[in-house]
Computed example of a mutant assay.
Amino acid sequence: MQTRLADVLTRLKNAMALPNRPDNPAAPVLLAVSKTQPADAIAALAAAGQLAFGENYVQEALPKINALQALGLEWHLIGHLQSNKAQEAAHAFDWIQTIDRAKLVPLLARHRPPDLPSLNVLVQVNIDDEASKHGCSPADALALADLVAAESRLRLRGLMAIPAPHEDPQQSTQAFRAMRDLFDAMRQRHPGVDTLSMGMSGDFVAAIEQGATMVRIGSALFGPRIAPQSRESNA
């Protein structure tokens, strides 16, 4: 696992030097997608130096978060958030990357405990308008971001997307570029935003070239897995 982590970090570093990459001062953040992984596998990766982890399902994540509390890990929800899970998510996670509708905003703000820092939030965009994917439309993203920014218990950090898989790399590049354009528009309205979360194990180099500041990597770190057919893959 340590070898896989070192390999991914090397590929991230190399991607930063690609000639078409926008000028970003910091290296992209690596988010290890730990859905379906047991707590001991997460602990092993944490021992190798990886401290930020992404989970798809609130109920699957809670036992891991509790079991590994002493490690000081940073937890991101990267799967679709149901309204009835908003209270648990607001308590347990450091980041929610999948805000895709206005209803979630006051729920998360209301339930974020006052003794915790403001909850980091990304607006999820369905950039390719896929019927099977969650996320707001690009046209609605900035208005949704305005709602987040108005809540003191939430901290607007930027955008997240899961572009459609394409055999033609140029099509993926277009989706990533469209997300970068939307991110730049958001930063004009909200200068404090700093995170564009896009790119997974199979396409994160292309995402970094187009300006990703966070990539979500699962199989390249933990090894291949077979995702349930009915669940949306975010890594």
Rank of each mutant, 00 (worst) to 15 (best):
L81I: 00
L30W: 00
D129W: 06
A70F: 03
K13C: 13
L30S: 07
D181W: 04
I217C: 11
E88T: 07
Q37V: 01
P22V: 10
Q174F: 01
N120K: 10
R11Y: 04
G54M: 12
L30H: 00
R180L: 12
V33G: 02
R189C: 13
D23C: 11
L71G: 05
A26P: 04
L221N: 09
S83T: 14
S34A: 13
R110C: 13
D128Y: 09
V105M: 08
N120E: 09
N234Y: 15
P169W: 02
L159M: 00
Q82T: 04
N56K: 03
G135M: 09
D7Q: 15
N66E: 09
P25K: 05
A131S: 11
L9V: 02
T98M: 10
L31T: 01
R216D: 08
T3R: 15
N126R: 06
A220I: 09
G49Q: 11
S34K: 00
L77I: 06
N234M: 07
R21F: 03
G135D: 05
V123M: 04
G158M: 00
A92L: 10
A161Y: 00
S201D: 06
A149H: 14
I127A: 00
K133F: 05
L62T: 04
P25T: 02
V205D: 00
Q171G: 02
S230P: 14
A61F: 03
M200L: 11
N56Y: 05
A207S: 11
P224E: 13
A178G: 09
P25L: 01
A178T: 05
P165A: 13
G211S: 13
I42V: 15
R155E: 15
N126L: 08
R231M: 07
K13Y: 03
P191N: 12
R189P: 08
V121Y: 03
A149V: 11
F183I: 08
H80R: 14
S197W: 00
L156H: 05
V193L: 02
L196T: 00
Q37C: 07
R4D: 13
E151V: 03
N56D: 12
A47D: 13
D23A: 12
A149K: 08
R112N: 12
K85S: 11
D168R: 14
A145C: 14
S137A: 15
T98W: 02
L104R: 05
L73Q: 00
P169G: 04
